[in-house]
Amino acid sequence: MLATLRCMVMRDLTLAMRHRSDVLTTVFFFIIVVSLFPLGVGPEAALLKEMAAGVVWVAALLASMLSLTRLFADDYNDGTLEQLLLVPQPLSLIVLGKVLAHWIISGLPLVVMSPLLGLQFGLEGDELMMLMVTLLLGTPVLSLLGAIGAALTLGLRGGGVLVSLLVLPLYIPVLIFGAGAVTASAAGMGADGHLSLMGAILLLALVLAPWASAAALRISVE
């Protein structure tokens, strides 16, 4: 089982390494979206600091969603996806491998970049830390839930726009708890409750989402 997972992750990472520019696009999209907010609302430090967590989280949502369309589409177009459906392994495990690779490529860079962006908005020490931790817990959920949407819209015209319509409402709890944790810790209220709820959501998504994505893939490949 672990061998299968490792094989899928390595395969997708190798592929991503041969298309490095795609990875960078996601990260720069994230940075640009975050940087647009001060230009829109003005450079007032207090206001920016209050908005910081929400802005970074919404940008992370959008960036992760942007990279979703490629999650299965390339494999679908060259026929490797149908071959993956036919290997003697549970399809949900294959999906989990792909999602894990997708998170390493598109989620993890966001986590790493986030303190830098937080600094731009005037966040400090603990808040920066909290921002990173929430993104670390939350971005895998984004990839897991997003995989369902990506699988359902596979091969459809306008799939990219459609996937956002399907997936963004499902992202709302992660957004609320993620941004809420940072705000709560900034207000000195402690964010343990938020973090454990995010952990629970992550576990739930980890159990259910690969299964749902596998079912969606079988429907879409037909």
Binding site: I148, L152, L166, L170, A212, A215, A216, I219, S220
Partner: peptide
């Protein structure tokens, strides 16, 4: 597909 989405 839409049935699966409704369940999710």
């Amino acid at each position: 597909a839409s049935g699966l989405l409704a369940l999710v």
